[in-house]
């Protein structure tokens, strides 16, 4: 079976492309600074942060972590299949990747619905200000990632020449970035306080 190869050992061609990695680092720095600020403020009001953290459903957070990790696994499999020119498997794994993202958004919506119903909105206290800003900003990334994956999916369905491997890897890198950000958000917001 013929395979497609890019020299990722070159400084200018990391998997997903140099521009995507610049975006990834900017996002990681932005979320990282906000999380550091959250932990810093928790020193001033440890009781509020602890009691507020207990109002979150950490089981939902853990299940969402599993959804995103599994989705990332299928994304990696999809890229692998695409490099081997196996369009059928690529499409199947891409659908499973998107399913993981959709399940994440459904569970997040249920969580948000409960929080709004209980009056735990963005102005409730400083913990929930951080909670809403960080998780909503992440949800926006997941939605954008899904749009990119849908676009890639229809590109593949149209025919092999409409989507090249660099574009596919860039879309995959964006999707994995959503996993990476969540891996930082989940322990700090849901577990440590």
């Amino acid at each position: 079976m013929q395979t497609q190869k890019i020299n990722h050992k070159s400084l200018y061609y990391p998997p997903g492309g140099i521009l995507m990695w610049i975006v990834i680092f900017l996002e990681l720095i932005t979320f990282g600074m906000a999380l550091i600020a959250m932990v810093f403020y928790s020193k001033d009001e440890p009781v509020i942060f602890h009691n507020s953290r207990l109002l979150l459903n950490s089981t939902f957070g853990a299940i969402n972590t599993v959804f995103l990790i599994t989705s990332g696994f299928f994304m990696a499999k999809s890229v692998e299949s695409y490099k081997e020119n196996n369009t059928t498997k690529t499409s199947l794994y891409l659908k499973l990747t998107m399913l993981g993202g959709v399940l994440f958004l459904i569970l997040k919506s249920i969580e948000y619905y409960g929080k709004i119903g209980a009056g735990l909105t963005i102005g409730y206290n400083i913990f929930f200000s951080f909670y809403w800003m960080l998780t909503l900003f992440h949800v926006i990334h997941v939605i954008v990632g899904l749009v990119i994956l849908i676009s890639i999916f229809y590109g593949i369905k149209k025919g092999k020449n409409s989507t090249n491997i660099e574009d596919f890897e860039a879309g995959a890198a964006f999707w994995h970035m959503c996993d990476l950000i969540w891996l930082l958000l989940f322990p700090i917001i849901y577990l440590i306080f």
């Binding site: 990722h8 070159s10 400084l11 998997p15 990790i69 890229v79 994995h176 990476l180 891996l183 322990p187």
Partner: peptide
Amino acid sequence: IILAVVKFIGISFYFMELKKAH
């Protein structure tokens, strides 16, 4: 936090194939 860092490395180095990068 350390476990989260290990998971981060797992996704970036293997799923994102950063292991093959410069």
